[in-house]
Design a protein around this nucleic acid. Structure first.
Length: 735
DNA sequence: GTTCTAGAAC
DNA sequence: GTTCTAGAAC
C-alpha cells in the first residue's frame, strides 16, 4: 500500500477521525477495531450496533448519537456495523460535515465463503448471529453489497480483500498517533474485473450469460439489478480455486504470501482444484544438511516426478521470504525449466496454507522424527499440533517408526482440525538424513550416503503423493469414499498395488447421521397390476417375497414405470440404452445430476427397489456393482479427475431396482434443489458396497428413507459446511 | 422422476 | 418483494 503522503491533500492535524467499517458478518470488523485499539495511542471509541443497547442489539439512531458524542469529545470513532450499502452508511458519513472531521471507510471485502464459515462456526457472537442462520444472512447481505466510493463523502477508503490486506490496514490505523493523519484517496483496491467462471456460472440458474455478467468497470455499479452479485460469485470462485499462474513470482514484496494471483486473465480461471502436495525442505533445518546439495536433490526429484504427476502440483514451503533453501531451489528449478504449473514455492505456515495463504493443498509432508512422535521443534511440532491427536493415532495405526530415506502416508481423520480448516486429507511423514551430531543416526558428513538417503526420502514422499493422486483420481480434497478403489480391492485383492495400502485406506466419510424414524410409506393402496405379458426374460415373480411384504403393495405411477418398462422390454428402447445384458441394462439418467450419471438397471422382475432386495439377490447386486464399476472405469479413462460413487436411493421414485453411478462433481443443470442434493449426499444414498455387505450378512439392506433426510439443510459433501438455500446450491461445489 | 402453482414463510 | 414447500398432474 502506498503510504506516501499527498501534501496537497494532507488533512488538518490533530482531528478525530470517523472510520466506517464495511463488511459482512464474519469479515472481522470487531477484531479489526479491537486490534487497532489495542495498539493505538489515539483515543478510539468503537460504536457497535450489536452491543450498543446495554450489551444488546441497538438501533442505528443509537449508534449515530453515540458516535456524535464521542466525536464531540475529540475521540476517533469506529462504526462497527455491516454498512454494506450506501444508504446504511450515508448518515454516518454526514457526521463528518457536522463535526468537521475526516470520514474514512475500511472495507473488509473478504471472500463470502470465509465470512460464512466464520459466522457459521462462531459462538457467542455479540449480534447473536451464528450457526446455520448466519450463512443465510451473510449470503443475503453480500448479494446487496455496494462498495463505498469517495464520492459518498469519504476522504479515504481502504479496501482489504485478503487477510494480509486486513493486517496491513490494522497496522496502518494501529500506528496512527493522536496527531497523525493518513493520506486521502482509495487504497488497496485490486482490479475487481469480473472473472467469470463459466463452469460455475452455467450451473447457476437465473444468472446472466458470462459476457453480460462481466461488467467492464467492475465497480459494483448500483444500476445493475443485482448489485455486487457477480463480485460475490467471483470472489467465491477465486477463494476456492486460487490461480497459480506464475508461482515462481512471489507476490508483493514484503507480503507474507508467496502465491501470485493473477486476476487479469478471465480465461485462466480454472476449476482445476489440482491435487497438491506441500512439503518442507527435508533435513536442511535441524538435521543440518547442506543447502546446495539438498536443493540439487529437490529439483532433481521434482523434475523426475512432475512428469508422472498429471495435473498434480508440488509446493515447497518455508516460513520466511529469507529462506535460503527456497531461493536456491527456485533458481535451480528455473534453470532446469521445471514446469511452473506443477511446481511452485510458497512462503507461509505449512499448517495454514488454505486459511492464510489461499492455497489448497490436500496433502502435506511432515519432516518427521524416527519415532513418528509429536514434539521437537519446527515443522514436526507444528503439524502434529495443528492436526490434533487424530494425526497421532492415525500415524500409530500406520507405523511405529520410520527409517531415514522413507516416507509413510497417513490419511487424516475427518475430525482433525487440519482436515476441517485446511482441507488436508493426508499427511506424509518423511525422514531425511541427519548431519547433526546432536540427533540420532548422524552421518558424520558422509554426503555420499546422505545424498542417497535424501534422494530416497523425496522419492518416497513423491511416490506416496502420487499414489494418493492415483487413488483419489485427482480430487484434491475429496473426502468421500473412493468407491471404485474400494470395490476394486473387494473384487480382486491382487489388483491392489501394495503401495496403495500405504496410502489411501478409504476414509469413508460417513454421512449416515441416523434420523431414526422410518418413513411412512407413500403407499396409495393401489395394487400393482402385472398386466405386462410374459416375454423371454426371467419371469420369476417373487411370490413368496410378495407375501412377505416388500414394496409390492406400493403403487407406481405411469411415469414411475419408465425404467421398469425398459428393463422388461429393452429391445424397444435400444436407442436409449448404453448396454443390454441378461441381467441388467445400462442407461444415462434422463436428468443427470453430475457430469456423469448412469443407471445400472436390474432386469429382475419384482425387485422394484432396495426394500425388495433379499439375500438371494446378492448375485444380482454384485452383477450390478460390477457393471457399474466397469462404467465408472470407462469414464475415469476419459477423465481421470472424476470421482465416482455407486449407490441406491433408499426410497426411489422409479420402479425397478437401479444402481446410480454418479460422479461427485454434481455439476449439472439438473441439480436444482435440496431434495436432489440430499438424495445423493445424505444417508438416503446407500453405497452399493455397503448394501452388498448388509445383504450378505443380514439378508437385507439398511434403508434410510426418512423424508427428513431429503429436506435436511444443505451441507457440503466435502467440508460439511452448511449452506443456506437451493439458489446457492452451487456454492457447495466451491468448498 | 419433472414441472407448475398456490400459499406460506421470510 | 423473494424463497421455500407441498401438492397435483404427468
Amino acid at each position: 500500500m502506498d503510504m506516501d503522503v499527498d501534501e496537497a491533500s494532507r488533512p488538518k492535524e490533530g482531528k478525530a477521525i470517523l472510520v466506517i467499517l464495511v463488511g459482512a458478518p464474519g469479515s472481522g470488523k470487531s477484531t479489526f477495531c479491537e486490534e487497532v485499539m489495542r495498539s493505538s495511542t489515539r483515543p478510539w471509541i468503537r460504536v457497535c450496533q450489536d452491543t450498543i443497547g446495554n450489551g444488546k442489539a441497538g438501533s442505528k439512531a443509537q449508534c449515530l448519537s453515540s458516535a456524535a458524542s464521542a466525536l464531540k469529545d475529540h475521540k476517533s470513532v469506529f462504526i462497527d456495523r455491516c454498512n454494506l450499502d450506501r444508504e446504511q452508511r450515508s448518515e454516518f458519513v454526514k457526521l463528518g460535515d457536522v463535526h468537521k472531521i475526516d470520514v474514512h471507510a475500511v472495507v473488509l471485502d473478504l471472500p463470502a465463503k470465509l465470512c460464512i464459515s466464520r459466522s457459521v462456526k462462531r459462538t457467542g457472537h455479540e449480534g447473536n448471529l451464528q450457526g446455520g442462520k448466519a450463512a443465510a444472512v451473510v449470503n443475503r447481505m453480500l448479494q446487496k453489497k455496494e462498495l463505498p466510493k469517495l464520492s459518498e463523502g469519504y476522504s479515504r477508503i481502504t479496501f482489504c480483500q485478503s487477510e494480509s490486506d486486513v493486517k496491513g490496514a490494522i497496522n496502518t490505523y494501529g500506528s496512527l498517533g493522536p496527531l497523525d493523519n493518513l493520506p486521502h484517496g482509495c487504497f488497496g483496491q485490486k482490479n475487481p474485473d469480473s472473472k467469470v467462471q463459466v463452469g460455475i456460472m452455467k450451473f447457476l440458474k437465473k444468472v446472466p450469460a458470462p459476457d453480460a455478467a462481466a461488467r467492464p468497470d467492475g465497480s459494483g455499479d448500483t444500476t445493475s439489478q443485482n448489485p455486487g452479485k457477480n463480485d460475490y460469485f467471483h470472489k467465491d470462485v477465486e477463494m476456492a480455486y486460487p490461480i497459480l499462474d506464475n508461482p515462481n513470482l512471489e507476490s508483493k514484496e514484503g507480503e507474507s504470501q508467496g502465491v501470485a494471483f493473477d486476476g487479469s486473465h478471465a480465461s485462466r480461471v480454472s476449476l482445476d482444484d489440482a491435487p497438491t502436495l506441500a512439503f518442507p525442505s527435508i533435513s536442511t533445518s535441524d538435521f543440518q544438511f547442506n543447502y546446495e546439495k539438498a536443493a540439487d536433490i529437490i529439483v532433481e526429484k521434482i523434475a523426475e516426478f512432475t512428469a508422472k504427476l498429471g495435473n498434480a502440483r508440488l509446493v515447497l514451503v518455508d516460513l520466511t521470504h529469507k529462506s535460503k533453501i527456497l531461493s536456491l531451489v527456485k533458481a535451480k528449478a528455473s534453470e532446469k525449466h521445471i514446469d511452473t504449473q506443477k511446481f511452485l514455492t510458497h512462503v507461509g505456515d505449512i499448517t495454514k496454507l488454505h486459511s492464510t495463504g489461499g492455497l489448497n493443498c490436500n496433502v502435506i509432508a511432515n519432516a518427521a522424527n524416527w519415532r513418528l512422535k509429536p514434539g521437537g521443534g519446527g515443522v514436526n511440532a507444528a503439524i502434529f499440533n495443528a492436526a490434533g491427536p487424530e494425526l497421532e493415532s492415525a500415524t500409530k495405526e500406520r507405523a511405529k517408526s520410520l527409517s531415514p530415506g522413507n516416507a509413510v502416508v497417513v490419511p487424516l481423520p475427518a475430525s482433525s482440525p487440519l482436515f476441517v480448516t485446511e482441507g488436508v486429507t493426508h499427511v506424509i511423514h518423511v525422514l531425511g538424513p541427519n548431519m547433526n551430531p546432536q540427533r540420532p543416526n548422524c552421518l558424520n558428513n558422509d554426503y555420499e550416503k546422505g545424498c542417497k538417503i535424501l534422494q530416497d526420502a523425496y522419492a518416497s514422499l513423491f511416490e506416496g503423493f502420487a499414489s494418493i493422486v492415483r487413488t483419489q483420481a485427482g480430487q484434491s480434497r475429496e473426502k468421500n469414499e473412493n468407491i471404485v478403489k474400494k470395490a476394486l480391492k473387494l473384487q480382486d485383492k491382487s489388483e491392489c498395488h501394495s503401495r496403495n495400502n500405504l496410502t489411501n485406506i478409504d476414509q469413508k466419510n460417513k454421512r449416515d447421521a441416523d434420523h431414526g424414524s422410518e418413513k411412512s410409506k407413500k403407499c396409495k393402496g393401489i395394487q400393482d397390476s402385472f398386466g405386462v405379458s410374459s416375454n423371454s426374460r426371467d419371469e420369476r415373480v417373487d411370490s413368496e417375497h410378495r407375501r412377505n411384504g416388500g414394496s409390492m403393495n406400493k403403487a407406481w405411477g405411469s411415469w414411475a414405470q419408465a425404467l421398469h418398462q425398459m428393463a422388461m422390454h429393452p429391445e424397444k428402447h435400444k436407442d436409449d440404452l448404453l448396454e443390454i445384458s441378461e441381467d441388467v441394462v445400462v442407461l444415462n439418467d434422463l436428468y443427470p445430476k453430475a457430469k456423469k450419471h448412469v443407471l445400472i438397471l436390474s432386469r429382475t422382475r419384482g425387485v422394484d427397489c432396495l426394500e425388495d432386495v433379499q439375500k438371494e439377490h446378492f448375485q444380482l447386486l454384485k452383477k450390478m456393482h460390477d457393471v457399474g464399476l466397469k462404467w465408472a472405469r470407462k469414464f475415469l479413462d476419459e477423465n481421470a479427475s472424476l470421482v465416482f460413487r455407486l449407490g441406491y436411493h433408499s426410497a426411489p421414485s422409479m420402479q425397478q431396482l437401479h444402481l446410480h453411478v454418479i460422479s461427485q462433481d454434481f455439476d449439472s443443470k439438473h441439480m436444482k434443489n435440496k431434495k436432489h442434493w440430499n438424495s445423493f449426499n445424505t444417508a438416503f444414498f446407500r453405497d452399493s458396497i455397503d448394501v452388498m455387505d448388509e445383504v450378505s450378512s443380514h439378508g437385507k439392506a439398511t434403508l434410510k428413507d426418512d423424508d427428513k433426510l431429503l429436506s435436511m439443510e444443505l451441507r457440503c459433501h466435502r467440508c460439511r459446511s452448511a449452506h443456506p438455500n437451493d439458489k446457492l446450491l452451487f456454492t457447495l461445489l466451491l468448498c
